[in-house]
Every structure is written in C-alpha cells, then in structure tokens.
C-alpha cells in the first residue's frame, strides 16, 4: 500500500456515506425517526462550520456529535418540562408510532420510549455513547475510533453499559 492515500474531499460523499449512520446513532437516543433526522441535520451543520470532509476522523466526529446533540436535546426537553411542571409523567405527548394497533398500545409504546430516553439521560455519558454507537450499527473498531479507546476494551465496556442501562430502565418502569 502506498504511503499516499487519496482522501475523499467532497462533502457530498461524506454526507451520503455517513448521514444514515448518524441518523441511526441518534435514533438510539431519540427513539423518534424525525427527531433523529433533526439531530443529523444539526450535526452536519456543525460539521461544516468546524471541520473538513477530508478529515480522517470525520466519521468518528459525526457519530459522537450525534450522541451529544441528541442527549442535549433530551436534557433541554426535560428542563423545559420541569419548568412547565410536567416533568414527572413519562410520555407527556403522544407520538404516533408505526405498529401501534390501538390507543392503549400507542400509550404503552410512548411510555416505553420515554422510559428509554430517561434511562439514557441518567446513564454516565460514556455508557450512553457506547450503547448508541453499538446499537446504531457501528463496529467495535469504529466505536473504538469514536471513543478513543482500545478496541479490546469495547466488549467489557459494552457489557457494563448494558447492565447500567437495564438497571436504569427498571428504575424508570417502577
């Protein structure tokens, strides 16, 4: 392999390649496809202001930025609800969810989604990151690049994050 490595320098190429993955990562946190797309749009807007498409670590930056923007969005929603006195009840507003056969099912799905969101917000940041990256479809290698950790540690860290997530989820559903 030559020392020289051609680097794709067109933003469009990066967008086409990474946008679906950024949406996928964000969706793990938002649990809403429209919200996930909003997050992805925001992330790419930040990217063009701060980075270059040719940066070798551009995908890693995008993936982590998606998590931060999504989590920040959830936290700001939570603060807003706190201010409005509607914080305690999960699933304040109902979102139409594909596959919901009746109102009861819709309510249940929204409750589940809100529980997941709240559990993720309560997790340590690194735990939320590794869960979103893994279930967003990234490989161990890509997760290692995004989180700046050794790929050999991913399995252990992921198991720890899944355990913490399960506990938080159980807490939310009580």
């Amino acid at each position: 392999m030559s020392l020289a490595q051609a680097v794709p320098n067109r933003f469009e190429d990066l967008f086409a390649r990474e946008y679906p993955r950024v949406v996928s990562v964000a969706y793990r946190i938002t649990r809403d496809s429209a919200d996930a797309e909003d997050v992805a749009q925001e992330v790419f807007a930040q990217f063009v202001r701060m980075r270059r498409a040719s940066d070798a670590n551009a995908p890693a930056w995008l993936h982590v930025a998606a998590i931060h923007v999504a989590l920040n969005g959830l936290r700001s929603q939570r603060r807003r609800r706190d201010r409005e006195g509607r914080a305690a009840q999960p699933g304040g507003a109902l979102h139409s969810t594909a596959g919901a056969a009746n109102p009861e099912q819709l309510i249940e799905q929204n409750f589940d989604r809100e529980c997941v969101r709240r559990a993720l917000v309560r997790l340590a940041q690194k735990d939320a990151e590794i869960l979103a990256l893994r279930y967003g479809g990234l490989s161990y290698r890509e997760i290692a690049d995004a989180m700046h950790i050794d790929a050999a540690q991913i399995g252990t860290r992921l198991a720890r994050a899944e355990r913490a997530f399960r506990r938080e989820l159980e807490h939310e559903r009580i």
């Binding site: 946008y19 996928s24 969706y27 496809s33 797309e37 997941v116 279930y135 997530f165 399960r166």
Partner: peptide, 15 residues
Amino acid sequence: DSAIAATALGGEVPV
C-alpha cells in the same frame, strides 16, 4: 442485559 438493551435500543430507521 444485552437482550433488554437490544429490545429497547434496536430498530431500523429508513433514511
């Protein structure tokens, strides 16, 4: 734990 996480966090997003 993995199964719970997969159920809660999985799913496809068409883009």
